[in-house]
Amino acid sequence: MLIPERSLLAFQLTLSNARRIAVKKWEYLFVRFDYFAGDLRPKSVNEKDFRDKQDIPPLHELSNQLGQEGWELTGVNSHPGYGYGFLIFKRPKESL
Rank of each mutant, 00 (worst) to 15 (best):
D39F: 11
S63E: 09
Q65C: 03
R6T: 13
E27F: 01
K25A: 07
S78P: 01
G67Y: 02
G70E: 02
R51K: 12
E69K: 13
S78E: 15
S7M: 14
V31T: 05
K93G: 02
F30E: 00
R41I: 04
F89E: 01
Y28T: 03
D39Y: 12
A10T: 08
V76C: 09
A37F: 10
L40F: 15
L96N: 10
F86E: 00
T74R: 07
D55V: 03
D34A: 09
E61N: 10
K43T: 09
Q54A: 13
P58F: 04
E72H: 03
K53Q: 12
L62F: 01
P42L: 02
D39T: 13
F11Y: 13
A18P: 10
Y82S: 14
Q68G: 14
N17R: 15
P57H: 03
E72S: 07
F89I: 06
S78N: 13
D34P: 00
R51V: 12
Y84T: 05
L9S: 13
A18N: 11
F36N: 10
Y82C: 08
W71M: 04
Y84D: 00
L29Y: 08
D39W: 11
E61C: 06
E72D: 09
T74S: 07
G85P: 06
S63P: 01
D39H: 14
R19C: 10
Q54Y: 04
E47K: 06
R41M: 07
A37P: 00
Q68R: 14
Y35H: 15
S95R: 12
P92K: 00
F30M: 04
G75Q: 08
D52W: 01
P92G: 00
N17M: 13
G85L: 06
L13E: 15
K90H: 11
F33I: 01
L59I: 10
E69I: 02
P57L: 07
F50Q: 01
F33W: 08
K90N: 11
G81S: 09
E5C: 11
V23R: 14
Y84E: 01
F86D: 00
Q68Y: 08
N64Y: 08
Y28M: 04
Q68I: 05
E27G: 02
P57K: 04
L2H: 14
K90T: 05
D49A: 08
L13Q: 15
S7I: 14
S7T: 13
Y35W: 13
L73M: 07
R6I: 12
N64I: 02
Q12A: 15
P80H: 09
R32A: 01
T74I: 14
N77V: 15
G83H: 05
E61M: 11
Y82K: 14
G85A: 09
F30A: 08
T74H: 01
E47T: 07
G83T: 04
E94P: 10
E69T: 00
H60R: 11
R51H: 07
S95P: 02
G70H: 05
I88D: 00
P92V: 09
P92Q: 03
M1E: 11
R19D: 06
K25Y: 00
E27P: 02
E47L: 04
F50L: 02
K90F: 08
Q12E: 15
Q65S: 11
S78F: 09
R19S: 06
Y82A: 14
L2K: 13
T14V: 09
